[in-house]
Computed example of a mutant assay.
Amino acid sequence: MDAQLGKWKVVKEETTGLDEFLTKLGLPKEAQAAYKDLDYTIETSKDGDSFKSVVNITGRDPLVYTWKLGEAFEYQSLDGTKPMLTVTEEGDTVVESYTLEKFNRQWKCVRKVDGDAMTATTSCEDVSMVQKLKRV
């Protein structure tokens, strides 16, 4: 988890599979448009056994989360839904498991760091989106 601490910026032009992933999640076209233009940074810090993540999305107020590994917490999605999110470590990767019971949706994001580059692979059933982030 320590490798993922600090500030990371998404490299939008390197995102692949976004359209297919958003369609698989069942998001309406207008919600999909917001995700396609998404430009953000995420900064994560650690204090004891707690973590704080601040997501800064261009044109929006920051989203701030305080969480612990293995404990579910409510996450605020861009489309207004609030899935439960549980973050765990599996070897040298961090796995984010999302559950949105209201719409019977589940998906996972696996994050892996290699130096100053992070790859985030988000999957729902047989469809995946890959995002690249760089340390800033």
Rank of each mutant, 00 (worst) to 15 (best):
I57K: 06
L38E: 13
E74M: 10
P83W: 02
T86L: 05
V87C: 01
S123R: 12
F51D: 09
P62A: 12
L25R: 04
D37Y: 13
T66N: 15
G59P: 00
T66M: 10
E90Q: 08
T86M: 06
N56H: 13
D47C: 14
V54N: 12
E89Y: 01
I42L: 15
L27R: 01
T81F: 01
L63V: 15
T41G: 00
G17N: 02
R105F: 02
K12A: 11
F103H: 04
L22M: 08
E101R: 01
V110C: 11
K46P: 09
N104D: 15
F73T: 12
K68E: 07
L78N: 06
K68R: 12
M129D: 00
N56P: 10
T44H: 07
S77T: 00
E125Y: 13
D61L: 05
V64F: 12
Q76C: 07
D114C: 13
D126F: 04
S123V: 10
V54Y: 11
S77H: 01
D37Q: 14
F103V: 04
E90M: 02
T88W: 01
K108N: 13
E125C: 12
G59H: 01
S77K: 00
G91R: 06
S128T: 08
M84W: 12
N104Y: 11
T122D: 09
D19Y: 05
G91M: 08
K82M: 00
G26W: 07
Q76A: 08
T15Y: 08
A120R: 10
G26Y: 06
V64S: 13
K132F: 10
G26S: 03
K36H: 15
T44E: 09
T81W: 01
E101S: 03
E101G: 05
T86G: 04
E74W: 07
L27V: 00
Q106R: 14
E89I: 01
L78I: 03
L22A: 07
Y40A: 12
E20I: 01
V110K: 07
S50M: 10
N104H: 14
E43Q: 10
G115K: 02
Y65P: 03
A31Q: 03
W67E: 06
S53K: 04
I57A: 06
K36V: 15
E89C: 03
E125I: 15
A72H: 07
E90D: 06
D126M: 08
K108P: 08
R111E: 14
W67K: 05
T99G: 03
Q131F: 07
K52E: 07
S50C: 11
E71W: 09
G17Q: 02
E13C: 11
L27Q: 00
G48D: 14
L85N: 02
D49F: 00
T121M: 12
F73L: 11
T86Q: 05
Q106I: 13
S97W: 09
Q76M: 09
V10Y: 10
K29Q: 14
T81G: 00
E101W: 02
G70M: 08
E14K: 15
Y35E: 14
T93M: 05
E43I: 11
T99Q: 09
F103T: 06
R135E: 05
P28D: 12
C124D: 05
Y98M: 06
D61C: 05
G91N: 08
I57V: 10
Q106D: 14
